[in-house]
Write a protein that binds this DNA or RNA. Structure first.
Lengths: 218, 218
DNA sequence: ATCCCTATGTATAAGCA
DNA sequence: TTGCTTATACATAGGGA
């Protein structure tokens, strides 16, 4: 028997150009993400600096750099002789996080966040509609129309999911008692990640608009 | 008994700088190899061009390019004028290919993340549209410290729950009241709110929509 | 393009050679 | 540093929404 594949799971593929354009794009996206993640992990784990430039099949360029492409490139250049274009504008400054470790952590977070960003774009869009004129969520919820509330809820769902994902990646480790603790405030992060279900409307006090910190930002 | 570990076999590790130098070195080697492999697969599968430069913790340089680092970097450079490298490591996306050959070849060229600009433009565009109204979520999540993230997560959790609940309430009671104003009086909420004060460093509002280049939009 | 899900294919953390 | 082995943690191909 040829034994059909009832499996919906992963299947082995041959490493050769994917013919189905459709498929190819999906694969590109997924793998690109995975690759990116791995790169950031490598830099975090080993403290290695990495610069990467990728051109998608559609010639769209993507780049990644830790700490940034420029510095890596420069260093690379200074190590070898033959810089035809050695004078690049470089406006890289030390970011607020002078701490390398923090940067690494941040990097990872950002990595995972890239997807969230997109999602967020949609969210923002929706939010704006439901928001009308006030700044953020300042306006009392009472003033929102029902459908607006629904949208808001949807937006929050997305938002939360996104954040959860990120946070989850950063502080999931239980018993965090490592050198990392310097930054990590505690270990309840993992717990949280698992419980990010929205429906648990228990007592949640919510005061969203005035978390106290939001206002000044506006 | 402390339930001994079946020991042999992969163990989960935390993504943070490896302390044991020994370990770090091994890990670096292995992961680097894996990274290149995946890169090559990606390039083969999707026909993408990739350039990559990696500095080992010992500052040893490794590079990989498909078809070669030079051409990629050049293309990258000519593609954009000046990088918006603000303070974040611009990790747009990454992908690595190796498929071919040189991996440990020291090359000379400038890698510029100008491409980030494109992405940046996109982001800006999107943000611009969704911006205007909501600004409190402005601070890039990338800038949040871990503990801030925890708070953020808490805030979101509450927020979401609250909204969900609210919507629920309204659905049941057409009489829109202002439950929220009072709800937040709870100890939980209060406490939470109080803790939400974040350092200026990262105006803790949540919001992640920019890869890091968007902070000044608001 | 992104999310979810499932069943696998793979990459790999430790150890030891 | 590179290989081999084991047992596992992760990544991801397909397919659907």
């Amino acid at each position: 028997m040829v034994s059909e594949k009832p499996a919906t799971g992963r299947r082995k593929i041959k490493i050769e150009k994917i013919s189905k354009k459709n498929h190819l794009q999906v694969t590109f996206s997924k793998r690109r993400a995975g690759l990116f993640k791995k790169a950031s992990e490598l830099s975090t784990l080993c403290g290695a600096d990495i610069a990467m430039i990728v051109f998608s099949p559609a010639q769209k360029a993507f780049s990644f750099g830790h700490p940034d492409v420029d510095s890596i490139t420069r260093r690379f250049l200074s190590g070898s002789p033959s810089p035809p274009s050695s004078g690049l504008p470089q406006l890289i400054e030390t970011r607020r996080n002078a701490n390398a470790h923090d940067q690494n952590v941040e990097l990872t977070r950002i990595l995972d966040h890239i997807e969230a960003e997109k999602k967020y774009g949609e969210v923002l869009d929706r939010m704006r509609r439901a928001d009308r004129s006030r700044c953020c969520w300042e306006s009392p919820i009472e003033e929102l129309e029902l459908h607006e509330l629904e949208q808001l809820r949807g937006a929050l769902e997305e938002l939360k999911k996104a954040v959860a994902k990120q946070v989850n990646n950063i502080l999931i480790e239980p018993t965090s008692s490592l050198p990392f603790s310097a930054v990590n405030g505690g270990g309840d992060g993992g717990d949280f990640a698992a419980k990010l279900e929205i429906d648990n409307a228990s007592s949640a006090a919510l005061h969203f608009n005035n978390f106290g910190y939001a206002q000044k930002i506006c």
